[in-house]
């Protein structure tokens, strides 16, 4: 046999063995992907066009139905194994057709009419854009409904509500006028903060803080830096859209900012990942908890807060 194949036979044998191993591996992995009996409506093929909706689908246990996500979908880590179908909010319709998608779940489609053309191509479109926790819970319900698994939403929403209530216990006894006044900076050039129209405004409120820019109606207003000196926040939270926020030293070195209470007392929070605070998904309640601990300085059991605590990286379920 070996002689028949010639002097390179051993190479062939290795190649065949590797191929067989790969095939077995793929079959095994693929087998794990098959839908469990009693699982979600079999055959629904879902594409998620936003990191937040991807997280919601995972939390609902519907990840086996996901056939495509965006290149920004980085959580939970297994989301990275799902094929990418393009950027946030701008789907490529041909790719979706090729994937034989039944349902597109999005959070804000970029192009007007994108929903219409997806609809014409025979795909159902669910565009959820929650602006507060009430709408987030509705969105989770709507997504569960859309795949005919409405019973999956209840426990998820209940767990989130319970987490919010637990967090509220941290500051329930603190009267509103003594709660810390918080300035959140999401970009430095030009200075951009979060106004009353944003989801994070409610995150700050639920964490027991008062957003200094709450009265501005815009979700992400660009304000004069002198306004921030005037607001004189007790706590500054930096959570930039790009990878790293301004440093504490940079903040203290800004002209005139040494007058700000938060800068004087060093109450500058810059270690909460921006997806915990800005991504309207199930982990937002973790963002609320972590922020509340930064604002009130102790854990629910009353112990001192350890800034390196591991709950920044909430468990993925």
């Amino acid at each position: 046999m070996i002689r028949l194949l010639g002097p390179n036979a051993w190479k062939w044998l290795i190649a065949v063995a590797v191929a067989a191993g790969l095939a077995a591996g793929v079959a095994l992995l693929g087998g794990r992907r098959t839908i469990r009996p009693g699982g979600p409506a079999a055959g629904t093929r879902i594409v998620s066009l936003a990191p937040s909706t991807t997280e919601i689908l995972f939390r609902l246990g519907l990840e086996d139905l996901l056939v495509g996500v965006t290149d920004k979908c980085d959580y939970p880590p297994r989301a990275r194994d799902i094929p990418r179908v393009g950027g946030f909010g701008s789907p490529n319709i041909e790719t979706l057709l090729a994937l034989r998608v039944d349902l597109v779940v999005a959070s804000g489609l970029d192009k007007r009419g994108a929903a219409g053309s997806l609809d014409k191509a025979g795909m159902r479109v669910l565009d959820v854009q929650p602006r507060n926790f009430r709408e987030l819970f509705e969105a989770i319900n709507a997504i569960a409904q859309a795949v005919a698994r409405p019973e999956r939403a209840g426990p998820v929403v209940a767990a989130m509500r319970a987490e919010l209530d637990r967090t509220a216990g941290l500051y329930r006894t603190v009267p509103p006028e003594r709660r810390p006044r918080v300035y959140v900076e999401i970009w430095n050039d030009p200075i951009t903060t979060v106004g009353g129209g944003s989801f994070i405004d409610e995150v700050i409120d639920r964490a027991g803080g008062v957003n200094v820019a709450h009265n501005l109606p815009q979700p992400f207003p660009r304000v004069s830096p002198e306004q921030i000196i005037q607001w004189n926040p007790d706590v500054i939270v930096l959570t930039y859209m790009s990878r790293s926020s301004a440093s504490t030293e940079e903040l203290a070195g800004r002209i005139g900012w040494d007058d700000i209470s938060a800068v004087k007392t060093g109450r500058i929070v810059r270690d909460i990942p921006n997806d915990l605070l800005l991504r309207p998904g199930p982990r937002l309640v973790d963002g609320v908890r972590v922020l509340a601990k930064r604002l009130y300085g102790h854990t629910p059991t009353g112990g001192l807060n350890d800034p390196k605590e591991s709950d920044l990286h909430a468990k993925d379920e």
Partner: peptide, 9 residues
């Protein structure tokens, strides 16, 4: 106040 320094800059 810090505001005047900021405005002058």
């Amino acid at each position: 106040s810090g505001i005047v320094r900021l405005r002058l800059a």
